[in-house]
Design a binder for these strands. Structure first.
Lengths: 212, 212
DNA sequence: TCGGCATTTGACCTTATGGTCAGGAACAGG
DNA sequence: CCTGTTCCTGACCATAAGGTCAAATGCCGA
C-alpha cells in the first residue's frame, strides 16, 4: 500500500501536485472504464504527464487504483457513521439521504468508481464490504430497529431501508447519462431528486397513525 | 449489425447452438468487466471455443457486444410497455416493480451489462436512451400524471418515480455482492426485497386521505 | 555557482490482444 | 462413397499495454 521509495522524506510540493494530478486523471478514466478497461497511457494523457512519469509517482496501475479506492471507502462510510441514534428518527434518516445525494452530486466519479468495482464482483474491496461496512450497517440497522420498535418510524426491514437509500441516491450519479437522456434538457436532476427523495422517505418512514 | 457472410441461408443447428454459447459466455465476461475490460480470449475460454472460432460466428468483439445490447434493450423496455393505463393505478405500478425485480433476479448479468454500458457514458445506446426509452417513459409518465391528477395515487414527479423503480430493483442485481456481503449468510435478498419494495411503493403511492 | 537529489523522458522489453488466413476435419445431400 | 459446404484450428500479424532503465534535466540549499 506504500508508494515512493521506502524513504520517509516529507513529500515535496511537486510530489503533492503531481500525485494529485495523477489521481484526478485516474479517477476520470477508472470511473468510466473500470480497472481493466482503463489504460496507463490514457491516464497519462489526461494527466498531461508521460507514462514513465506516472510510474515514478505510483508503483503500478494497481497502486493508483488502490489509493483511489481506499480514499473513497472512507468518504463513503462517513455519512452513515454520522447517523445519530439520539437525534430525531425521521430527520436523521432524511439528513443521511441528503448527505448521500450531495455525495452523488459533488463526487459522481467516485460513485461510478465504486459502482464499477462492485459490478466487477468487488475483488479489491470484498473485505471492507463484509467487514467494516457490514459492521457499520449492522449497528445503524439496530438503531433503526429500535426506532421502529418504539413506533417512531414505520416498521421496515432496516438493512433494506439502507439499501434503498444507497440505490436511490447513487442512481443519480451512476446512471447520470440515462437520467439526463430521459428527462431531456432543461432539468436539474439533483435539485428535483432532492425534493422527490424527501417526499419519498417522509411518506415511507412516517409511522401508521392507526396502529394494528 | 449483420453477422455471418451476407448469404441468407437459414442458420444450421450448429450455428444456433454455438452462437448461443458464445453470447452466453460473452454476457458473463462483458457484464463483469465492461466492453473494454473484456477480452476475446476470455470469452473464448468461457465458451469452450477457440478464438478464431468465435470470429467465425461473429465479425468482431463489437459485433458480439452489440448483439447482446440490442437483445437486452428490448427485454428491458418490455415491462414498462406493459403498464396499463386502464388498470388499477397502485396495482399496475406494483406489478411493474415486481416484473423489474424478477428481471433483476433472473437476469442479473443483463442488468450488469446495462449498468456497465451506462456507467461508461452509454456510447452505444445513447440514441435508444434519448429516443425510444425517453418516448416510452414520457407516455408512461403522462399516465402516472393523470392518475395523480385524479387523486388515485400520490402526487409525485412521475419521471423520478420511474427512476426510483429502476434504481431500487436494479440495485439488487448490480450491487449483488455488496447486498450479500452486508446481509451476511442466510438471507434471500430478492425474497426480502419483494416484500420491502411492496411496502415501500404502497406507502409511497397511497394518496393522502386528508387532502389539502 | 556548485553538488546532489528530485524529476522527467526516450527507447526498449515482454506480454496481451483483436484479428487474419490457409488449410484441415466434419458433415450434409445425392 | 463422393463432393461441396460448413465448421474449426494452428500459425501468424500488428498494435496496444504494463512496466523498466539509463541518461538527461531541473531544482534547491550551501
Amino acid at each position: 500500500m506504500q508508494d515512493r521509495k521506502s524513504e520517509d522524506r516529507p513529500p515535496t510540493r511537486i510530489q503533492l501536485r503531481n500525485r494529485q494530478t495523477i489521481l484526478d486523471a485516474a479517477l476520470d478514466v477508472f470511473s468510466q472504464h473500470g480497472f481493466r478497461g482503463a489504460t496507463l497511457d490514457q491516464i497519462a494523457e489526461v494527466a498531461g504527464l508521460s507514462k514513465p512519469n506516472l510510474l515514478y509517482y505510483f508503483a503500478s496501475k494497481e497502486a493508483i487504483h488502490g489509493e483511489l479506492l481506499s480514499t473513497l471507502m472512507d468518504a463513503w462510510l462517513d455519512p452513515l457513521r454520522a447517523l445519530d441514534p439520539d437525534g430525531d428518527p425521521v430527520e436523521e434518516v432524511l439528513a443521511y439521504v441528503r448527505r448521500k445525494l450531495e455525495l452523488s452530486r459533488d463526487y459522481p466519479r467516485e460513485s461510478r468508481l465504486f459502482a464499477n468495482e462492485v459490478l466487477q464482483g468487488a475483488p479489491r474491496i470484498a473485505e471492507v464490504l463484509g467487514g467494516e461496512l457490514k459492521a457499520l450497517v449492522d449497528t445503524r440497522s439496530a438503531t433503526l430497529a429500535d426506532w421502529m420498535k418504539a413506533g417512531r418510524i414505520a416498521d421496515l426491514p432496516p438493512h433494506h431501508l439502507i439499501f434503498s437509500i444507497w440505490a436511490l441516491t447513487q442512481h443519480y450519479a451512476d446512471f447520470d447519462v440515462q437520467v439526463r437522456a430521459v428527462l431531456g434538457p432543461g432539468h436539474d436532476p439533483y435539485a428535483e431528486a432532492e425534493g422527490f427523495l424527501e417526499q419519498l422517505f417522509r411518506r415511507l418512514l412516517t409511522p401508521d397513525h392507526r396502529n394494528g
